[in-house]
């Protein structure tokens, strides 16, 4: 009985997320006015900015989990760290692609080495390494500790990457477009941020369950199953 209630609540949450997502997409694509300078192209922002923000949020969650794990080891923390690293990878990959598409009509090139976008792109490669490490270590406890260390190393690099790209680029050109923002645009952006946040939560919960189930399967093997990978100490 309880299981079925939970199941229904989950389905309702997913449907609600989809509804808010659809409404937010409508505000961004139809309802909001075109930008004074960038015209309709600016509508990419309503997807690009939330995607990148959710990537950074995932990275923050990953960092917190990594620190917490080193102080207090728990499979749940490890599973959430794995989940958040993967969502960071997904949201970051799509987010930077959108940024590049947006850059083409506005800057004239796909990639203008914008410091923020470049930082996110570097972080993407770093989290790809993090996920590869998780895949290439078979002992779950070592994997958890090592990936926690790796997650911390990646996270503390963020400000240094940002400043290095900024200074590196400032030797070539400076780009700044201070503009007043239409209140309708703010409204649409807020809804889109909410929508993508909810999508992130749904993804995180689903991925967290996958990771946790995998951890429990790895750690509680009653007898060595045939074909199970032996951990070499």
């Amino acid at each position: 009985m309880e299981m079925r209630m939970r199941r229904r609540l989950e389905i309702a949450a997913v449907l609600g997320t989809l509804g808010i997502f659809a409404y937010a997409a409508w505000t961004g694509l139809v309802w909001a006015p075109p930008d004074r300078e960038m015209g309709d192209v600016q509508r990419i922002m309503y997807a690009h900015v939330p995607m990148v923000q959710m990537m950074l949020l995932s990275g923050t969650i990953n960092f917190v989990c990594c620190v917490v794990y080193l102080f207090r080891a728990s499979w749940k923390t490890d599973a959430l760290a794995e989940a958040s690293a993967e969502t960071a990878l997904v949201f970051g990959a799509i987010g930077t692609t959108l940024g590049a598409i947006w850059g083409r009509p506005t800057w004239g090139v796909y990639w203008a080495w914008d410091p923020r976008l470049t930082t996110v792109a570097i972080l993407l490669v770093a989290y790809a390494g993090y996920m590869a490490l998780r895949r290439f270590v078979d002992d779950p406890e070592r994997r958890a500790v090592w990936s926690a260390v790796t997650g911390i190393i990646i996270a503390v690099d963020v400000p240094i990457i940002y400043f290095s790209v900024k200074w590196w680029k400032s030797l070539h050109q400076v780009q700044s477009t201070p503009r007043t923002v239409d209140p309708q645009m703010v409204y649409a952006l807020r809804w889109n941020i909410t929508a993508f946040f909810l999508v992130l939560i749904v993804f995180l919960v689903a991925r967290y369950r996958i990771a946790l189930a995998a951890r429990l399967r790895e750690t509680t093997v009653p007898e060595p199953a045939p074909g199970a990978q032996q951990v070499v100490a």
């Binding site: 960038m38 015209g39 309709d40």
Partner: peptide, 10 residues
């Protein structure tokens, strides 16, 4: 000077 069109990018 506003970018015209560009819906294909969107």
């Amino acid at each position: 000077g506003r970018i015209q069109g560009g819906w294909e990018y969107v």
